[in-house]
Design a protein around this nucleic acid. Sequence first.
RNA 1: CGCGAAGUAGAGCAGCGGUAGCUCGUUGGGCUCAUAACCCAAAGGUCGGGAGUUCGAUCCUCCCCUUCGCAACCA
Length: 704
Amino acid sequence: MQNPKRYLITAALPYANGLKHVGHLAGAYIPADIYARYLRAQLRDVVFVCGSDEHGTAIPIQARKEGTTAQAIIDKYHEAMRQDFGDLSIEFDIYHRTSDPLHHETAAAFFQQLEQAGELETKETEQFFDPEAQTFLADRFIKGTCPSCKSDRAFGDQCESCGRSLSPDELINPLSTLSGATPILKKTTHWYLPLGKHEAFLREWILEQHKQDWRPTVVGQCKGWIEGGLQSRAVTRDLDWGVKVPLPQADGKVLYVWFDAPIGYISATKQWAIDNGKDWEPYWKDADTQLVHFIGKDNIVFHCIIFPVMLKLGGYILPDNVPSNEFLNLEGDKMSTSRNWKLDMRDYINDFVKAENGGGQAVDMLRYYLTQIAPETKDSEFTWKGFQDAVNNELVAVLGNFVNRSWVLMHKLCKGKVPPYHAAKADEYDKALIEQIRVATESITAHLEKYQFRDALFTVIDLARHGNQYMQRKEPWIIAKRLETEPDAQQSIDNCLHLCLQLTANLTILVNPFLPNTTKTLCQMMKVVDRMLEWKNAGRIDLLKVGYSLREPQLLFRKIEDTEIATQLEKLKKNMMSNEIPPAPITTQAELPAAKPTIQFDDFAKIELKVGTIVAAEKVEKADKLLKLSVDLGTETRTIVSGIALHYSPEEIIGKQVSVVTNLAPRKMRGIESNGMILMAEDASGKLHFVNPQSPVEPGSGIS
RNA sequence: CGCGAAGUAGAGCAGCGGUAGCUCGUUGGGCUCAUAACCCAAAGGUCGGGAGUUCGAUCCUCCCCUUCGCAACCA
């Protein structure tokens, strides 16, 4: 969009069930903040909204785990996250929350509008219900035996052991993970958003109109979903935590969290408007508004497919771009909350920002490094060594040092004042530097407009690097030695330092969106007011008035010591170790709230077990875990499909004796009917072993 | 399985049809105003593998391999 009248910037609403880590920061919040700050410097009309996402099943679950209430959980994490963002100079215009009444009202009205316009469907389905906990169960909260590999580590959505995706009704012996009770099927009615109806719109809007200007990963993923067929998605759930469905017949139902959360952007904007005496509607309904969602890649489907459909139906504008980032890994491994392999924003704040020598410069160091390694096109990696190198070799050595040496020389050779520029004496180096400032400004602006923050920041640092090169060529400290015999030499010194100071002023403007605290320090050193920071001033070489006296230099950044990163690495490893104390092999009672109930002999007798001999085996096509086996059971040879291909090759198991459940109902897998099931024992490492007689017996022998 | 993204110097990345670039690191030299910072130079790559299209491919097409992700907690 060319020069829109106003901008609305959103950063993904963080889920209020825990602290957020630097991956979240690099993925959404820092890029969004940079963009918002840049637009503010451009004096554009911009609102930058965010807030806590406080609904969904996971919040009550978390509350149960922490032995408290859902409200206490969201209050705690909402406040913690708000604080952490503030500490890292993420400057939202508003940080709202979805538990706010204004949001409930907004989301309910949104639903009602779609409902009344006939854009939603209702469907009656049977869902598992926990009779003890008196609640319907999300797929993830049902545990049972996998129909495919027979592992008991299968959940309603997926088997942890064989990786197969499941639906809850496929589980053998389903159990509620909440109470351990056996769930019962119960009828329930839900509202659905029929995405399929909007396929043509999505195709045209994303795959045609935004093929070029959206990131390839974003368009690619959307393409995958659209091509894969868009299913209707349930908009409501049976739960007592969330936005109540505003219909009389929907008692006990709330809006599904994915539906209510993005509406949080709208309610946040409303609250901002109230607080600031503005009108919220143009920001969401005027076509001359540019809406940009900053998110991580796991959120693409919501912000590019589902929410846009909702926005279109509701009469709102669509996002102009959704600059989604990939993931940030940590020291060679994926960040993971459950394994405690992560760096929380708060940990950095405590160890660096709040430490001695910390403060704003420590904030900017992290902002710098995370921007420099931002996973804009592919996953990238945070390493403490990388952090140290970036700070010491770039922030300290290039930017910090350039400013410092300029200031020191200016105080030594120019009496602490901005020296005059003698245009008549300008040499090729002077002219080249002026040109470099102009070119860099244009380039940085272009990168920012295209959401290429990493390249933009690189160009800023590169400009400081040019400053160092320029100074080296001009060598004012050498020229100063000739002053006694050659008084005219002062003009060369003046020109050099005049330009170095003007370059510093330019760097201050250009680095402001990225490193706002550094900008503040620089402004103090130059004794300039915030108005100088307006973006239109970038590229000018008359920002500091000749004769103006400047303050003493102060170091912009300190070095990161080896001991500091060693401490961090140790801490990271220790955290993970402490998390690993209960090693995986033995499943604890707490994890498996329901051991299988005692059964009577009659139940056992229902199972027919026989010894068989594998006579043939082949790999099942298009399945990497399945083998198709022919098993000799004495009286007959049966086809059995088994999920053991990762553990055994077809050749090595031919002739092996195995235990077979022979009266299991037939089941089709990958188009092949399997008549029975091979018993396998799983060891601690997950490796499967055959359960077979100690010495060979006749095929078909019974087992009891 | 399928779908999406990615595989380029020791590391991190750019390039995307015309004899391989950047930053850091390494080595050598210079300078000394500067937070042992700065500047200059050099070494270092058969651009994941194979086939094809083309006068010519890192860049296009096909196949294969590897990594990451793929809808209901997770940037």
